[in-house]
C-alpha cells in the first residue's frame, strides 16, 4: 500500500471535518476523493501531505509512519487548486525548485527539468514567468514541479477546479494519460463525479467527514452503498418508493407485470437522448430514453403509459418519508 490512513479524526474548532476516516491507496493507482464541498476531502488530502495535523489516527506512506513527519520529509508532491506558482521565478526555476533545495548538480537539474517540461508540453515556456501563462499551463507547471522531486505519492487538490470547462476536459484526459506514463501513486480531490469516473481507477466517496463508499467507478455507480452515493454519482429518479437511474426504466404502452401507470407531462428532446417527464402515483419522475424509442411509441404529453425498472436494474428502496 502506498498510503494507509487509519481512524483519522480532525476538527476545526468544534466542527468535526474528518470522522474515523480509514482508506488504503494502492501503489501506482489513481484514486479520486469524491464528495460535496465541505465533505472533508481536501482536509484528508492535506492530512496525508502533512499540511494539517490529524487530532487522532495515523498516516503511513510507503509503510512508514508519517503521522508526525513534517511536510518536507514526506516526499509527497502536492498540487494546489490555485497553482501556488512561485510568481517571482521562471517556469524553469519553479520546476527546478525542489531539486535546487536538494542541492543536485546543475546539469542534472537542467536535464531533469527540461525532461519534465517536455512531459507537460511546456518546453517552449521555460523562460516565462507564471503570470505569462494561462491557467491550464500554470497547473501543468505545478504538476511538473511536484513530479520533479520524484515523490512517492502525488496529491492534487481540485487540480482543475479553477479552469474553464473546455480546459478542464482536456486536462483530465491528459492527466489520465500522464498517469499511464509515469505510474506514480496519485490521489486527487474533486467534487465532479464525471471527472472522478473518467479519470480514476478507484473512487472514495467522502461526505460529512466520513467515507461513504470505496470502489471502482463502475462499482460505485452501479452498486451505490446508499441513496446519498447513488444521488451523488449520477442522475436518479423515484418510482414506487425506489431510487432508480432514469436510464434503467422501461416505458410500455400496454400494462406489464410489476408496472405502474404514469401520465406523461413533458417530452424534452436533447439530441440523441430524450427526457420523458411523467407523474407516477402523484409524484414527479423522469425517464431517459433514446430518440428512436420515443418516436416508436410516439410519446406525447397527456399519454398514459406503464413504467417499471428494467429487470436486474439496481435500485434502492427509500425509507418512507
Amino acid at each position: 500500500m502506498a498510503i494507509e490512513v487509519r481512524d483519522v479524526n480532525k476538527s476545526f474548532g468544534t466542527t468535526p471535518v474528518l470522522r474515523d476516516v480509514s482508506i488504503d491507496v494502492e501503489s501506482g493507482s489513481l484514486t479520486a476523493l469524491l464528495g460535496p464541498s465541505g465533505g472533508g476531502k481536501s482536509t484528508l488530502l492535506r492530512v496525508i501531505a502533512g499540511l494539517e495535523q490529524p487530532d487522532t489516527g495515523t498516516v503511513r506512506i510507503s509503510g512508514v509512519d508519517a503521522t508526525r513527519l513534517a511536510p518536507q520529509r514526506r516526499n509527497v508532491g502536492f498540487v494546489f487548486q490555485h497553482y501556488a506558482a512561485f510568481k517571482h521565478l521562471t517556469v524553469f526555476r519553479n520546476v527546478a525548485f525542489g531539486l535546487e533545495i536538494r542541492k543536485r548538480p546543475k546539469d542534472e537539474i537542467r536535464r531533469r527539468v527540461m525532461e519534465l517540461l517536455e512531459l507537460v508540453h511546456l518546453e517552449q515556456m521555460a523562460d516565462r514567468y507564471p503570470s505569462q501563462l494561462s491557467g491550464g499551463q500554470r497547473q501543468r507547471m505545478a504538476l511538473a514541479r511536484a513530479l520533479a522531486v520524484e515523490p512517492e505519492v502525488l496529491l492534487l487538490d481540485e487540480p482543475f477546479g479553477a479552469l474553464d470547462a473546455q480546459v478542464r476536459k482536456e486536462l483530465r484526459t491528459w492527466l489520465r494519460r500522464l498517469h499511464d506514463e509515469v505510474h506514480v501513486t496519485t490521489v486527487f480531490v474533486t467534487h465532479d463525479q464525471e471527472e472522478a469516473i473518467e479519470v480514476a481507477d478507484t473512487i472514495v466517496v467522502l461526505a460529512d467527514g466520513e467515507v461513504k463508499q470505496v470502489g471502482s467507478p463502475a462499482e460505485v455507480y452501479d452498486n451505490p452503498a446508499d441513496p446519498f452515493v447513488m444521488r451523488f454519482l449520477g442522475p436518479v429518479t423515484e418510482i414506487g418508493g425506489n431510487l432508480v437511474r432514469p436510464h434503467d426504466i422501461e416505458i410500455s404502452a400496454e400494462p406489464v407485470e410489476g408496472g405502474t401507470a404514469a401520465t406523461i407531462s413533458r417530452v424534452v428532446r436533447l439530441g440523441f437522448e430524450v427526457r420523458v417527464e411523467l407523474t407516477v402515483e402523484g409524484r414527479d419522475a423522469w425517464v431517459q430514453v433514446t430518440r428512436g424509442f420515443a418516436d416508436q411509441l410516439a410519446l406525447t404529453p397527456g399519454d398514459v403509459v406503464n413504467v417499471r425498472p428494467v429487470p436486474g436494474a439496481r435500485s434502492l428502496t427509500l425509507a418512507a418519508v
Binding site: G50, F78, A84, F86, I101, A146
Partner: peptide, 11 residues
C-alpha cells in the same frame, strides 16, 4: 499556498 508548496518540495 506558495509557502506550503515550498514546504512540500522540501524547503
Amino acid at each position: 499556498e506558495m509557502e506550503q508548496a515550498a514546504a512540500s518540495l522540501g524547503a
